[in-house]
């Protein structure tokens, strides 16, 4: 399989949000605006690429029975590294995403890819898989964030489109997250079906 193919697969065929339905908590919890969604997506991508590469490097050395705990330690370390880096360089985004940054540890996408892809493939392929899945996730979160921000706050990436308007508040709050994700999933399914 070519590298490009692996990346494209991650974005479309194995899209973690719309097709695999993994990592739902940050998907709904952080997409109150397009910027937050994108930030969360990129943060997850960072951890995913690093953990994929390291796990594929170490997979042969780790005894089978302690595989999962070892993976969790590796993933948790990268998440903490990310936490520290974000606090230092993008403190505002870190404050906005809050609890969901440490929770990347238990994002099933990461452990899922480690088990399904990284421990059977070469580090380079695993990196590509990380990039693809990460971008697919980022793309999905950005689109969801965009729709929710537009409907709920009448703004686009933080720019107010209509003055004085308040938008439909429910879309920024919890119910909107579920409903927008549900409808976007339908749209994504329709689009990808036609392509096939």
């Amino acid at each position: 399989m070519s590298k490009l193919r692996i990346i494209a697969n991650g974005i479309i065929k194995d899209n973690p949000t719309f097709i695999l339905v993994l990592g739902m908590c940050p998907t709904i919890g952080t997409t109150t605006s397009a910027i937050n969604g994108m930030g969360m997506g990129l943060a997850t991508t960072f951890v995913l690429i690093l953990s994929n590469v390291f796990i594929s490097l170490l997979a042969k050395m780790i005894p089978d029975k302690v595989r999962i705990p070892a993976y969790i330690v590796i993933i948790a370390s990268f998440v903490t590294v990310l936490e520290l880096l974000m606090q230092a360089y993008v403190p505002d985004l870190y404050a906005a995403l809050g609890l969901f940054i440490p929770l990347i540890v238990v994002n099933c996408i990461i452990l899922g890819r480690a088990e399904a892809f990284a421990n059977k493939n070469t580090p380079l392929d695993s990196a590509c898989d990380g990039i693809g899945i990460g971008l697919g996730f980022t793309l999905a979160l950005t689109v969801i964030g965009m729709v929710r921000e537009l409907l709920g706050n009448l703004s686009f990436f933080g720019m107010k489109l209509a003055e004085g308007g308040d938008g439909m508040l429910a879309f920024v709050l919890a119910p909107g997250g579920f409903i927008v994700l549900g409808y976007l999933m339908v749209v994504f399914r329709k689009l990808t079906q036609k392509k096939a």
Binding site: P63, V66, A70, V73
Partner: peptide, 12 residues
């Protein structure tokens, strides 16, 4: 690669 107690403890 075998999961002996020694290798598991060492690795973790």
């Amino acid at each position: 690669k075998e999961s002996t107690l020694r290798s598991m403890v060492l690795c973790l």
